[in-house]
């Protein structure tokens, strides 16, 4: 009887050692996960892209009518709209001088105007055009997919400013890079 009791205590101690081993393993796992989670930056690029796309949409078409700045004096599409884009739309693509961002722009905007038969009639683009290629990479399971620029596409319909009030489909494509500050590299 006395031996049995002693064995039982011994057994309890062995169990408590295992118990602590399990706790250490679980705690280690939790700590590793939390550390990984908090050491990765918040990825806000998709939000930025959404806001940028909305701003561009508001700029080219307000209350369903195209912006007058899109047209020249004769009523044709203004081919110099790209040049005045920042001023007209109130945007500024300058970024902090870190990670070599001063050498390459971190944003890209493209707007393409179609008639209702989807024939392209006008377009403008601004920013780093190299980012556009990232928008068409379909394989989201790629290991480095997160490091690519985030793209947002928006489609809006609008009417022109002339008497006939032609209708247009406008496709706006926006890309935001800033990978160094939004993804763990």
């Amino acid at each position: 009887m006395s031996n049995l009791f002693r064995n039982k205590i011994g057994g309890d101690k062995v169990i408590s050692v295992y118990w602590f081993a399990i706790i250490v393993i679980v705690a280690g796992g939790v700590i590793a996960m939390v550390y990984t989670f908090y050491s990765s930056p918040y990825d806000v690029r998709e939000l930025e892209g959404e806001v940028l796309a909305n701003k561009v949409a508001d700029c080219v078409s307000f209350q369903g009518k195209l912006n007058e700045e899109l047209f020249d004096i004769e009523g044709n599409f203004n081919l110099k709209f790209s040049e005045d884009f920042f001023e007209v739309c109130g945007l500024n693509f300058e970024t902090e001088n870190e990670n070599g961002w001063e050498e390459s722009e971190q944003f890209f905007v493209e707007g393409v105007f179609y008639d209702l038969d989807e024939n392209e009639i006008f377009g403008f683009s601004k920013g780093n055009l190299n980012l556009k290629a990232d928008c068409f990479i379909p394989d989201k399971k790629r290991k480095d997919y997160e490091k690519l620029s985030k793209c947002v596409e928006k489609r809006i319909y609008s009417v022109g400013i002339s008497e006939g009030e032609e209708q247009y489909l406008i496709k706006i494509l926006v890309g935001v890079d800033k990978a160094e500050k939004n993804v763990k590299i």
Binding site: E48, L52, N92, F93, E96
Partner: peptide, 9 residues
């Protein structure tokens, strides 16, 4: 930490 905004305001 620094981060830029694109709205020209």
């Amino acid at each position: 930490y620094s981060y830029s905004f694109f709205n020209d305001v």
